[in-house]
């Protein structure tokens, strides 16, 4: 068996094919009618199935869309929770203090005085004052001596 039939087999196959095709072409009218009805029944089912599938698609999403829209409407109508009033007044007070501090130069200098410790004693100031006094005294002594 090499896949290619011998000429006699090929001729036999051709004649059987012609015979079968002739029989299929000359089917009785009743049989042809029943085949046509079967075809239409199958196609009708196909069309019904596709239509049902299409309806199911948007019918499936329509309730979800309606629920989402209703939730949006409710949120828009009722509004969000109002901000706490205390937080607004505190923020306003803090803002006012900052403005007053910036406008007052003395207050700003005091606020920027970072040398004082927790008891209010500014050791750097006193160290500077002592140094300045000694330097002044030294300058005076030298001037007297000379």
């Amino acid at each position: 068996m090499n896949g290619e039939p011998d000429p006699a087999s090929a001729e036999f196959a051709r004649r059987t094919r012609e015979l079968l095709e002739a029989s299929a072409a000359s089917l009785p009218a009743r049989t042809r009618s029943r085949l046509t009805r079967a075809r239409y029944a199958a196609l009708g089912q196909h069309a019904a199935g596709r239509a049902a599938g299409g309806r199911a698609l948007w019918q499936r999403w329509l309730p979800a869309g309606a629920v989402s829209a209703a939730v949006l409407v409710m949120l828009l109508l009722l509004g969000g929770p109002p901000p706490p009033p205390q937080q607004a007044s505190v923020t306003g007070a803090a803002g006012g203090d900052d403005l007053e501090l910036l406008a007052d130069h003395d207050a700003l200098a005091l606020a920027q005085d970072q040398g004082a410790d927790a008891n209010g004693v500014d050791y750097e100031f006193y160290a500077w004052a002592v140094g300045a006094a000694q330097e002044e005294a030294g300058n005076s002594g030298a001037g007297v001596g000379t």
Partner: peptide, 14 residues
């Protein structure tokens, strides 16, 4: 589909 089924239905029946 209709074209396909119409083409094959007689031979399929035989």
């Amino acid at each position: 589909l209709e074209s396909f089924l119409a083409t094959v239905e007689r031979k399929a029946f035989r």
